[in-house]
Amino acid sequence: MSNPSAPIFDPVLSGVPVSTPVGAPLSPEDQARADLYALLARLLLSAPDADLLEALANADPILAQGGELALEQSWERLQLASGVMDPQAVAEEFDRLFVAVGTPSVNPYGSRYLSGYLNDAPLAALRADLARLQLARVRGAGEFEDHLGALCETMRVLVAGAPRIARRSLEEQQRFFETHIAPWYARCVDDIASAEGANYYRLVAGLAGAFLDIEAEAFVVGEESNDRAS
Rank of each mutant, 00 (worst) to 15 (best):
S5L: 09
C152E: 10
D60H: 01
G209C: 05
E223G: 06
G222K: 08
L158M: 12
I62A: 08
D51G: 09
A218Y: 03
F211E: 11
L40A: 06
E171K: 08
D86E: 15
A50L: 08
E196G: 13
R175N: 10
D86S: 14
S19K: 06
P25I: 09
P25N: 11
L123I: 01
A125D: 10
E145Y: 01
P17L: 04
E224Y: 04
E54L: 10
N199W: 01
R33M: 04
V22A: 12
M155K: 01
A124I: 14
L207D: 09
P21R: 08
A186C: 07
E215W: 01
G149Q: 13
M155H: 04
W75Q: 05
A24T: 13
S19Q: 10
A208K: 02
G149H: 10
V157Y: 07
Q88E: 13
L126V: 11
A34K: 02
S5Y: 05
E217C: 00
D120R: 04
S115L: 11
N58Q: 15
R137V: 13
A131I: 14
F177W: 03
V221E: 15
P17S: 14
A121W: 03
A150K: 04
L80E: 15
L36K: 03
G102Y: 06
G66W: 01
Y201E: 06
F219E: 13
A210C: 06
N119Y: 15
A100D: 08
V84M: 05
I8L: 14
V99D: 13
L203W: 03
S5M: 07
G142D: 15
A91Q: 13
L39N: 09
E92H: 07
F219I: 12
P17T: 03
G142W: 02
L43Y: 03
G209A: 06
S194L: 05
Q73R: 12
V84G: 00
R42N: 11
Y117H: 09
R228N: 00
Y113W: 11
H180C: 08
G66K: 05
D49K: 02
D146Y: 06
T154S: 02
F177E: 02
G140C: 13
G140W: 09
T154M: 06
